[in-house]
Write a protein that binds this DNA or RNA. Structure first.
Length: 866
RNA sequence: GCCGGGAUGGCGGAAUUGGUAGACGCACGGGACUCAAAAUCCCGCGAUGGUGACAUCAUGGGGGUUCGAUUCCCCCUCCCGGCACCA
């Protein structure tokens, strides 16, 4: 055995050994329980960043742990290979997105392999391969047949200069990121998937997911946003020229009598109708069309509106109510119109205050009364007031009473609505999966027949920033109608990349199946036993995947209801963000490693090292390609090895916690591995002890040895719990560090000591092996020549070693720590109290005081209250 | 704005079910080894007061429940994630 730890050598040998034995190639086996451990596949952005290392190390630790516990483990990997960054790279470098993507995949695959993850590479999937995306197309056509896929208009960001649709990310402060032009909202046709058909099941089945974090289930439930309310019809006031009734949805029908106006979205037909004869209103609606489509922006923009001059009548009182256009009303929720009750809704209150609209209070708190006039909206429920025959009712009762009254007049009914909207999947972009449709002048929209799938995306186009190059490529779009044979045009929109990522984990079960989307192997491996990925995917990706799986189930392709049984949401790895606005108005991002901090008269400032010019500090945020703040792990791997990189990442914090990047501590992780190596080296040099189970039981250790052996077996219990239940790898590592520290202090070199050292080192190597597999692979061969670590089971604690005769109890006086007592494990409460009171230090404090109460917590503490 | 989460020494974090606040590690200081440096090993390390034993304070801020609160409840501040075309 070498005296020094050389990670590169150790890692190369270990990886070679695993590869030769194809130990991570998974197959369906009936004799073992299966464990499908899935990490979210990466976007091939160029190189790995620390978030990837964190994600995939967690997955590998759990995979290797399960493997040692006798599971048939599948850990696959693939590439979320379609998307916007490839097009941006293409624009910048003039290289086709396909080439850039394939190069990145090759490089990143090498990086993943060098980190020693136990991945079954034979199942690798890339979503940009026709073998994969043909099944997106195939299932889309099935959804079209079932009416789950359908066409309607969608609102997009339109850059009037580049004449192109922009992603939300490409709109900065309401302007196009390349042109600086003010962005307009534009309505164009697109395809939708009716996820709302599954809203109830998606909500209800969250109950079937106890292995998901509570917060993710809460977020999904809130996103689906099931609410019980009342649809209310406000009949038109014909005299004002109002062309139609307005339907609104409200969860607060108890406030109906406080309605003082009705507000509609700028895109609402009534708004457009009024604008035809109202020039200022038309202009206002035009300004509403500017700015981004992002909900966050709509919700924070200053409230603005304009009266249409039209009126509706109150459905119960027949009072005339003005109809306003308001920018805070969303066309995408409900009917695009709301009844405004300024007294009891914050947004309505702000709006009414700004435009001098009446505020009428109709709810008071159950205790006390309202201070009128209201300084702010009273949004709680309570008791109705000033509401005619509905006055004096509990909110809940009032809602029912109002609903009944409306129903009698045919002007309303109870209704359940969802916040969830159908999933728009059309993208006016090149680097994505083509939507398999053909437009024919004679036959209309014609699905591409199954035997003509896949519609293959040409891989040699280079986008130039002015829209989707497919629309300019006749070789792609020109075709003949499959029905009538006349010349026709192919759909040039591609699918949202969330489609690609909604079922890749099912394809891993059978990536070599060329005749079907999936086969029976999917029902062997799925559902995923452990899914690991960033918390940023808590809603969209996970909800779309759940929906897509249910559609596949209902199409008879798979048998499971939910795709992911257990979910571990990794915290984000954050890093500083630095940027600078170029002369053209484009924002350039700079890597934090290229930025220096300087002190000037205003305090801290940041400059780019290359040109010493200032850059703007944009706070901290997720490591990403677009913010150019990712940290490549390669530097650490090259200098210290993969095991140090893995150990450091796992030791830095619990996996679910957000982590601000710092490499302080990498050195410490490396130092620990060197100490471990040295301890094994010294032990083996002094003559290792072959330890069989019989020998292990023979020695009755005493004194220090007994304590250390107790610590050893406590460590096994704790590490097992930390890995399996708690997923707190940082505390598992800390506990093993303590054990190694304890072992290092063991002075003797007699046989019992050497035996205990052997037992301890073997256990440490096994316990750490999921986290730092390479060094453990080598150390195991030294400790147990002729055997392989990967054949070893997970260590089991010896119950007898855990038993201690005496325990330490803490003694508090009035909740403050005042002493400690050593006492027999099974001492009676009276004996414990006596020992506590007679403790020298405690006695001094309680002498002469009246004792009010003594609290004894068995095994933990005694609290004397004086 | 709405939904979800977070805040503990100089730093990352620990305290698992309301029971010893600061495990483990980093940084730092001191010492040993060395011609010297690196590496390694040993010791110290929340703040204040005290020679010391020890005492008091301290888990983002304010209040509450409890024998006892980092942990539970209420209010507030700041930070992070998501908000449907970044992935």
């Amino acid at each position: 055995m070498q005296e020094k730890y050389h990670p590169q050598e150790v890692e190369q040998l270990a990886q070679q050994s695993w590869q030769e034995k194809t130990v991570f190639k998974a197959s369906e086996q009936a004799d073992k329980p299966k464990f499908y451990c899935l990490s979210m596949f990466p976007y091939p952005s160029g190189k790995l960043h620390m978030g990837h290392v964190r994600n995939y190390t967690i997955g590998d630790v759990l995979s290797r742990y399960r493997r040692m516990n006798g599971y048939n483990v599948l850990q696959p990997m693939g590439w979320d290979a379609f998307g916007l960054p490839a097009e941006n790279a293409a624009i910048q470098r003039g290289v086709p997105p396909a080439q850039w993507t394939h190069d990145n995949i090759a490089y990143m695959r090498g990086q993943l392999q060098s980190l020693g993850f136990g991945i079954d590479w034979s199942r690798e999937v890339a979503t940009c391969h026709p073998d994969y995306y043909r099944w997106n197309q195939w299932l889309f056509l099935r959804m079209l047949e079932q009416g789950i896929a359908y066409q309607k208009t969608q609102v997009v960001n339109w850059d009037p200069v580049d004449q192109t649709v922009l992603a939300n990310e490409q709109v900065i402060d309401g302007r196009g990121w390349r042109t600086g032009a003010v962005i307009e909202k534009r309505e164009i046709p697109g395809y939708y998937l009716a996820i709302t058909r599954y809203a109830d099941e998606l909500l209800a089945d969250l109950e079937k997911l106890p292995g998901w974090p509570e917060r993710v289930r809460t977020m999904q439930a809130n996103w689906i946003g099931k609410s019980h309310g009342v649809d209310i019809i406000f009949p038109p006031d014909a005299d004002s020229g109002m062309p139609q009734a307005l339907k609104v949805f409200t969860t607060r029908a108890d406030t109906l009598m406080g309605t003082t106006y009705v507000a509609v979205a700028a895109e609402h037909p009534v708004a457009l109708h009024a604008a035809r004869t109202n020039q200022p209103l038309a202009a206002f609606i035009e300004t509403c069309k500017q700015g981004a489509t992002i909900e966050a922006e709509l919700a924070t923009q200053e409230k603005a509106g304009m009266a249409t001059g039209l009126f509706v009548t109150h459905p119960l009182t027949s009072e005339r109510l003005p109809v306003w256009v308001a920018n805070y009303v969303l066309m995408s929720y409900g009917e695009g119109a709301v009844m405004a009750v300024p007294a009891h809704d914050e947004r309505d209150f702000d709006f009414a205050s700004r435009y001098g609209l009446p505020i009428k209070a109709v709810i008071k708190p159950r205790q006390g009364s309202l201070d009128l006039p209201l300084g702010q909206a009273f949004t709680d429920d309570g008791i109705t007031i000033d509401s005619g025959r509905f006055s004096g009712l509990e909110s809940m009762v009032a809602i029912d009473a109002v609903a009944v009254a409306l129903a009698e007049k045919g002007l309303g009914e109870k209704r359940v609505r969802y916040r969830l909207r159908d999933w728009g999947i059309s993208r006016q972009r090149y680097w994505g999966c083509p939507i398999p449709l053909i437009y024919c002048d004679q036959c209309g929209t014609v699905p591409v027949p199954d035997d003509q799938l896949p519609v293959v995306l040409p891989e040699d186009l280079v986008p130039d920033g002015s829209g989707n190059p497919l629309t300019k490529t006749a070789a792609f779009y020109a075709c003949n109608c499959p029905r009538c044979g006349s010349p026709a045009r192919r759909e040039t929109d591609t699918m949202d990349t969330f489609v690609d990522s909604s079922w890749y984990f099912i394809r891993y079960a059978c990536p070599d199946q060329h005749d079907a989307m999936v086969d029976q192997r999917a029902n062997y491996w799925l559902p995923v036993d452990q899914y690991i990925g960033g918390i940023e995917h808590a809603i969209l990706h996970l909800l779309y995947s759940r929906f897509w799986s249910k559609v596949m189930r209902d199409s008879g392709l798979v048998t499971f209801d939910e795709p992911f049984s257990n979910l571990l949401t990794q915290g984000m790895v954050l890093n500083e963000i630095f940027s600078r606005k170029s002369e053209s108005g484009r924002i350039e991002y700079y890597a934090p490693a290229e930025v220096d901090v300087i002190q000037n008269e205003d305090g801290k400032a940041y400059v780019l090292r290359a040109d010493a010019e200032p850059v703007e500090f944009g706070g901290v945020g997720t490591m990403s390609k677009s913010k150019n703040n990712g940290v490549d792990p390669q530097g650490i791997v090259d200098q210290y090895g993969a095991d140090t990189a893995r150990l450091f990442m796992m030791f830095a914090s619990p996996p679910t916690q957000t982590l601000e990047w710092s490499d302080a501590g990498v050195e410490g992780a490396f130092r620990f591995l060197k100490r471990l190596w040295r301890q094994v080296y010294l032990h083996v040099q002094s003559g290792g002890v072959a330890l069989d189970d019989a020998l292990r039981q023979q020695h009755v250790f005493s004194g220090e040895l007994k304590l250390l052996r107790c610590q050893l077996h406590q460590t096994i219990v704790k590490v097992t719990d930390d890995l399996e239940r708690r997923h707190t790898f940082n505390t598992a590592i800390a506990t093993v560090m303590e054990l190694l520290n304890g072992l290092a202090k063991l002075p003797g070199n007699d046989l019992p000591s050497r035996q205990l050292a052997q037992e301890t080192l073997e256990a440490i190597v096994l316990l750490l092996s999921p986290i730092v597999p390479h060094i453990c692979h080598t150390l195991w061969r030294e400790l147990r020549p002729g055997t392989e670590l990967l054949d070893q089971p997970w260590p089991q604690a010896d119950e007898q070693a855990l038993v201690q005769d005496e325990i330490t109890l803490v003694v508090q006086v009035n909740g403050k720590l005042r002493g400690r007592i050593q006492i027999a494990r099974d001492a009676e409460p009276a004996a414990i109290e006596h020992a506590a009171m007679t403790d020298e230090h405690v006695h001094k404090i309680i002498a002469g005081q009246t004792i009010k109460k003594i609290v004894v917590v068995p095994g933990k503490l005694v609290n004397i209250v004086i």
